[in-house]
Write a protein that binds this DNA or RNA. Structure first.
Lengths: 177, 177
DNA sequence: CACGGCGGAGAACGTGCGTTCTCCAAGGCT
DNA sequence: AGCCTTGGAGAACGCACGTTCTCCGCCGTG
């Protein structure tokens, strides 16, 4: 197993474990066990846990936004499709809310790289929503709905929060034109 | 110092520290130091850290909702006043987002009491918003906006997220009547 | 075959922290 | 005064975990 494959397996394991149980609750040994990569190589690829966490967040950002973009694009870039995607996500087994919001809660004073990854994700999502809509204000309003629905679905466990947000988005879009 | 005063001082210290730095980042020794209560009595009042965390959340829920209710009531129970209150909150020094959302992120699989306290808070806030509005659906939509604005203000540090949510709320209220 | 290094497995180390224990001073009661 | 209880200060314990170290088998090369 070469170093790039090890990195891939580590990121895979890290994403599964960190998202499911939280970053702090998962030890490096659990990542090693799940990935099948030795501890020595783990620390060659990621000199410290913070580096692994940062890479996990960056990778999850890419995949998460890629999945959303693809789904919405297949529906003619209809902004309302965002909420259909959300509902699917909320209903997935193992859904535990937004990894970035959760990480923000975990790290009171996060390492700079982690804080930057969290902000980057939210900035990119906001920019994506703006790209879907003519009006910047409406996009930002939908963004707040997306975040709110995600948080509430995570806490209550009810995927229906996506529908509530979708109805609100429909009204906002109609009002804006 | 009797036991009830000790409990009060402990809760005060716990709220300051837990909210500012996160629960996991604050040791029981820090709570002891800040409260001026001995470790022995601390463990008499709260047999384990989880009990203190749970009490902290329950107390914060009461105070937070009390502050919001009072502010909004003084403005004729206008639902839009909720967003004015939010903006003040976001602009407070030391604002770090919603304590309950942060705690949800910190505890992957929270102790039952902590999970219950988090859900209770969100349920109570939702019920409060419903009490302000004739339409249950509109109230739930505003709730999503409130949560989204809070999360985004915490991550970006921009209190202006409250204004974005307020504009959306205005549209939703006008559409509903 | 001897040898040198690469990599894996897992022990070991240091630290932080939740929780408990030890010791001692102060104060009320007889 | 003598004694017993209460409570405080802080040491001590146990454990978890991030990180590093040790040992050893495996491989290619002379």
């Amino acid at each position: 197993m070469d170093s790039t494959e090890a990195t891939g397996r580590l990121l895979e394991a890290a994403e599964d474990l960190f998202y499911a149980h939280g970053v702090q609750a998962v030890g490096m040994d659990a990542v090693r066990e799940r990935s099948g990569v030795s501890l020595k190589r783990l620390y060659q690829c990621f000199p410290a846990k913070n580096d692994l966490v940062e890479a996990y967040l960056l990778r999850r950002d890419e995949r998460w936004r890629g999945s959303l973009r693809e789904f919405v694009h297949a529906r003619g870039d209809d902004p309302l499709a965002v909420f259909a995607w959300l509902k699917n996500w909320f209903a997935e087994p193992g859904f535990r809310g937004c990894a970035f919001i959760n990480s923000f809660g975990e790290f009171g004073e996060p390492a700079p790289g982690i804080a930057a990854a969290i902000r980057k994700h939210k900035d990119e999502v906001r920019a994506y929503l703006r790209s879907l809509l003519p009006g910047r204000d409406t996009a930002d309003q939908l963004f707040a709905l997306v975040e709110g629905a995600t948080v509430l679905a995570a806490i209550t466990g009810d995927p229906g929060e996506a529908d509530t947000a979708r109805e609100a988005a429909k009204v906002l879009l109609a009002a804006q034109g």
